[in-house]
Design a protein around this nucleic acid. Structure first.
Length: 275
DNA sequence: AGGGTGCCTAGGTCTCCGCT
DNA sequence: AGCGGAGACCTAGGCACCCT
């Protein structure tokens, strides 16, 4: 409903202001994993790399399989990593959850990391499977940028797939960026370094999009009116809901009427030769 | 492709208003 | 007062989206 868009836009704008008021306490997070479709045995998807970028100074922490292997002096060929994948993955998640324990005050901006299939819960679950004890991030410390942009600009703000189309619309050249399907394929081919680069690029892109949304320079398909949910229907809805809007609408109407009368009066005076 | 999420729409219910 | 029609509102189900 249009009125809902009006309210959603307001809430989203407030949320955006809130995070940019304390950028030193906000990070953007993203991760890559193997495809969650090609797991016939129901096993949880393996995680390849996680990137966390601070909103204020762009400093980025990253955790990845190939870095763990490198530190242990293992070659970065997938054939050499694969036999010990679970062990390296657990070491990587140890580091990640240690980082999370040391940064409990931060809010994490993410892109669709919502459920046990893909998201914080999926990472926590995977760590448990590997014998770890994850720290659980409270939901009020998570901000889904994908949903925020929908609330901010309306559901039709960009075509699908949203992320790729949004980059194109805003002429953002994302070097090393891979689509989800490409990342799944890269995992199968053991291209862990490429996956890591793509993850790093994505947190960069998400920061960029959040900044443009905050600066009101993000290009979208919806008009200003659609973005703000403004229509006659919205005005009527608001008039019903809040007395202040009723007053404004009445005053606006009265102002319009007075303007019309004045215009008519001056036209009449001009016609009669008075100026 | 799996599954959670949210949007959209159709259909049912409720409320209001006008007519008899 | 009672009835009927129109519009508003609510809800459930279907469907599209979205992540890798």
């Amino acid at each position: 409903m249009a009125a809902n868009q009006f309210e959603r836009h307001g809430r989203a704008r407030a949320k955006l202001k809130q995070i940019f008021a304390i950028p030193e306490r906000v990070s953007v997070i993203h991760y890559s994993c193997e495809s969650f479709y090609d797991l016939p045995d129901g096993r949880s998807p393996r995680i390849t790399s996680i990137a966390v970028r601070k909103l204020d100074n762009a400093q980025t922490e990253s955790f990845s399989i190939h870095q763990i292997a490198e530190i242990r002096g293992v070659s970065l060929k997938s054939a050499d990593i694969e036999p010990s994948y679970n062990e390296y993955e657990k070491l990587m998640l140890n580091e990640f959850f240690e980082f999370m324990r040391n940064n409990t005050e931060r809010t994490f901006v993410h892109w669709n990391m919502r459920d046990k299939n893909y998201g914080f819960r999926a990472i926590e679950h995977r760590y448990k499977v590997l014998g770890g004890n994850p720290i659980v991030l409270p939901d009020d410390r998570k901000l889904d940028l994908s949903r925020l942009l929908i609330d901010l600009y309306g559901v039709a703000y960009i075509g699908h797939p949203r992320l790729e189309t949004l980059l194109e619309k805003n002429s953002i050249e994302a070097l090393d960026f891979m689509t989800g399907a490409q990342e799944a394929e890269a995992f199968n081919q053991g291209k862990y370094v490429d996956l890591h680069r793509s993850t790093l690029r994505k947190v960069d892109v998400f920061c960029n999009l959040a900044q443009r949304a905050f600066d009101k320079t993000l290009k979208v398909n919806t008009s200003w009116k659609e973005t703000h949910g403004l229509s006659l229907r919205t005005l009527l809805y608001l008039a019903k809901k809040h007395w202040i809007y009723t007053t404004l609408i009445v005053l606006g109407g009265a102002g319009g009427a007075l303007g019309g009368i004045y215009k008519g009066y001056t036209a009449l005076m001009a016609a009669l030769g008075y100026s």
